[in-house]
């Protein structure tokens, strides 16, 4: 899967404000579950999970690429593989946009 360029393209599209609002709404429902394992945004380092990999501070491209790796099965996680498997491209892009930081 050549995820990186398409992810980058959509991330740029999101930044330019031309993404469909539906994608952002979808990210809303799923995105609120991410902190349950990965920790809350902005929580201090002492509260960040130590074993569960963190995505905070990563770029949108990196997060989108990793989610596509999980979905394709080329990166093995535990819970993450099962969840990513059912994500649509729009949902991955919206999650990446929601949690990615500007490079």
């Amino acid at each position: 899967m050549t995820a990186l360029p398409s992810s980058l393209g959509i991330a740029l599209a999101l930044l330019c404000g031309i993404a469909a609002p539906a994608a952002a709404e979808q990210a809303g429902s799923i995105a609120l579950s991410c902190p349950v394992c990965h920790g809350a945004v902005g929580s201090d380092a002492a509260h960040a999970p130590s074993a569960v990999p963190s995505f905070y501070g990563r770029s949108a491209e990196e997060i989108g690429w990793q989610l596509r790796e999980f979905r394709a099965g080329s990166r093995q996680g535990s819970a993450m593989s099962r969840l990513a498997n059912a994500l649509t491209d729009d949902e991955i892009d919206a999650l990446a946009h929601r949690y990615g930081v500007a490079p």
Binding site: P35, V36, C37, H38, G39, A40, S43, H47, P49, S50, A51, V52
Partner: peptide, 9 residues
């Protein structure tokens, strides 16, 4: 870690 995070969340 999950337990620590979900209780905080």
């Amino acid at each position: 870690d999950w337990y620590e995070q979900i209780t905080r969340d």
